[in-house]
Simulated assay, not measured.
Amino acid sequence: MNQIRYARRSYTGGPTPIEKLERLSEALGGPAIYIKRDDQLGLAAGGNKTRKLEYLVEDALRQGADTLITCGAVQSNHCRLTLAAAVREGLSCQLVLTEPESGYDPQASGNHLLFHLMGAEKIAVIPADGDMQAEMEKLADALKQEGRKAYLIPVGGSSEIGTLGYMACAEEIEQQSLVMGVPFDYVVTATGSAGTQAGLIAGLAARQSNAAVIGINVSRDRESQEKKVHELLLSTAELVGLKGDLPRELVRCEDEYVGPGYAIPTPEMVEAVKLLARTEGILLDPVYTGKAMAGLIGLVRKGTFRPEDRVLFLHTGGAPALYTYAETFLSEK
């Protein structure tokens, strides 16, 4: 037995719920839409990175690290949750953040406020096109000089070890599907650093599920994103010894809903966030789940799904970032 899939911390009390979105499904007049509430995962304000961190932090502790170092945007959900995991484990945490086009505001709210509230040991801000990996290694070298040991976590926690979190989620979905008596035809998720989508595909393949995973891009074009996901899928499968063919065709990424770029609002995102809030009382975020839901809505309207299909939307969290986009939402009715 390959033990690596069992070496993990536990930050959530049990499976996250799957709920049927009756009112949204009716409003769209398409397939039956369900939602997997990974916004209710453990650690501060929840989100999909919690699943990845269960494996990553276990690896860090096994290696004797006393500090977690990771990177992301100023409003990074991953940085928030990595810091929360460090606090939970009694570790220090340092963050490398990329400066947004509008400039860095040290008084920014949302996730940035939570970095300070939870006591990040150090926050290094670099230009948007800066080398995050090099900056993390610089911080790690400085800690080494102090006799400390850092564990570096890539953007989004999307290494092979982090991706195991969404292999586990795929197994959880399959188990819930059996209990509910609802076989899902599609799983729709935001895709960025690739670990969530790659893990879902690997986990569903391991269970021989017929559910297809559709990633809605939040940054890159289709070709580069599909390449990134597929490469991580293959390396993760190799890590766990997953047998069988995992062709490129298993990876589907839609890039029509990115808009002008990462974290830049679009009218479709605004519509999606408001529609789910007003039909189901569920909050999405403007960077990931808002654009992913815009993609799901767009696919429904294009007739991608059959009326009898059952579509599961993965809510990857991120609501704290919503409050930094107040002007975007208040400017439209």
Rank of each mutant, 00 (worst) to 15 (best):
R80Y: 00
L91Y: 02
I69C: 06
G110F: 05
H112G: 12
R88E: 12
V74N: 11
L68A: 05
I69T: 06
Q75M: 04
E101M: 12
T70F: 09
T67P: 08
C93P: 03
S92Q: 15
Q63N: 14
A108M: 13
R80N: 00
L68C: 06
P106Y: 03
P100S: 02
V74Y: 12
E101R: 14
H112P: 11
L95M: 12
S109K: 14
A85H: 00
E99M: 07
A86Q: 06
N111Y: 03
S102N: 13
T70N: 11
A65L: 00
L68Q: 06
T70W: 09
A86G: 10
T82R: 07
T70Q: 10
T70Y: 10
S92T: 14
G90C: 02
L95W: 11
A84M: 01
C79A: 09
M118E: 13
A73N: 03
A65K: 01
L114T: 09
T98K: 12
A86V: 02
Q107T: 14
Q63P: 10
G110N: 11
T70I: 08
S102H: 12
V96Q: 02
S76C: 07
T82N: 07
R62H: 13
D66Q: 05
L81P: 05
L114D: 08
D66H: 06
L113S: 10
G64D: 06
G90H: 02
A108P: 06
H116C: 14
C93L: 04
L97Q: 07
L91T: 00
R88A: 11
S109W: 12
R80S: 00
T82H: 08
G90T: 03
L97R: 06
E99I: 05
S102T: 15
I69H: 06
G90M: 04
V74T: 15
D105F: 04
Q107A: 15
G72Y: 00
Q63L: 13
V96R: 01
G110Y: 08
N111A: 06
S109C: 13
H112Y: 15
F115D: 14
L113F: 15
L68W: 05
S102R: 14
M118T: 14
P106R: 04
G103H: 05
